[in-house]
Design a binder for these strands. Structure first.
Lengths: 199, 199
DNA sequence: ACCTGAACACCGTTCAAGT
DNA sequence: ACCTGAACACCGTTCAAGT
């Protein structure tokens, strides 16, 4: 078999991988389709076969980001323990991921995203659903509202903590302290007690 | 006096004003120095006299953003009331501003910013200092650590709530509920009671 | 001090053409 | 189905020159 022009069908994956590296090192504005094509050894028009435009590549990165995020949260849940222990671990995993992938997170939570319909919104919904596992089964169906509100409050707090760290407004150590303080306040609040099984 | 080439010294202000409008309507990537110059009726090289490059303009917008943010928070504090009432108002003002100026907030909390030295970091510090007024005078100097931590936790929670709303992951109404739930949890927590005067 | 206008290198996007 | 390569319109940045 003759060596084909260059890429055999994995160009899409190669571009996404390269793009992630650029995101980490230089931010979104450093990401150029032409440069990506150059690094992949294809012509500048080639990416067009896989991504209709630059935004489509950014969207694909965001969707992939949500899925990786979900994996990390799921992994943090695997060890079991009490509800409090699980949430503390998930909280740290949330902040860790968000700080490590700060630019990717900006993409994932960009206002321009197709939320909540579309693939990115669906990926975001999957992430959110894994938080249900952290809470355990609902004891009383009447607590469903409290559970929803608790999840939102939890996500908001972790999200904000990550933003402050990524923006270097607070140090990593201060961020850890915020997570601990947040979990203590949330778990001990009336909402926390209504949402989570007491045992 | 003859009409001077065009602008008489306010080009900088004009550019910033135009840029803010672009930010609201089309986001950062829609912001072009050449387009700004065109709208201002000057040549494409003119902005160079006021901003060394595109990033310098973005930085100026971020700094200005922090100052406006501080004004809004200060205004929310003006009406007095109990600590709980003040914090509830500040919380809403925080989220409102962040949602209204979502793109600007991204600029303000971008990782690339010169934090904490430099003009933007200084403007951010001024914002944070206004939160001291919300807490009132420290009762016991030993509570200084609790006050710092409470401020961080408060800021993180509001910041995260704003992000979720701006990203359309939650509705405006859900966001309001998160703010209320957050304030109840924070004010009632051990940290909240240590940081805030009980009366 | 502030602005002009040419010049340069770099983009994203489109599209006919190749395999 | 996937990639090439020319073409187009648009950028940011630099810099000598004008006032």
């Amino acid at each position: 078999m003759s060596t084909r022009p260059f890429h055999h069908g994995n160009l899409r994956a190669v571009l996404l991988e390269e793009a992630e590296a650029v995101l980490r090192t230089g931010g979104v504005e450093a990401l150029s389709l032409r440069e990506l094509a150059r690094q992949a050894g294809v012509s500048h028009g080639a990416p067009r076969s896989h991504f209709i435009d630059r935004q489509a590549l950014l969207d694909a990165l965001a969707e992939q980001g949500f899925d990786r995020f979900t994996e990390r949260i799921t992994a943090a849940l695997a060890d079991g323990g009490t509800v409090a222990e699980r949430f503390r671990r998930v909280g740290r995993a949330y902040v860790d991921f968000a700080v490590e992938h700060a630019v990717l997170m900006d993409l994932m939570f960009a206002a321009k995203v197709d939320a909540p319909a579309g693939p990115i919104g669906a990926a975001a919904a999957r992430l959110f659903r894994t938080l249900d596992s952290a809470m355990g089964d609902p004891v009383d169906p009447a607590d469903e509202d409290a559970r929803e509100r608790f999840k939102l409050l939890f996500a908001a707090t972790m999200q904000g903590t990550a933003t402050l760290i990524a923006a270097r407004r607070i140090s990593r150590a201060q961020g850890e302290a915020v997570v601990d303080d947040a979990m203590e306040a949330l778990l001990g609040s009336p909402l926390g007690r209504a949402a989570l099984p007491s045992r």
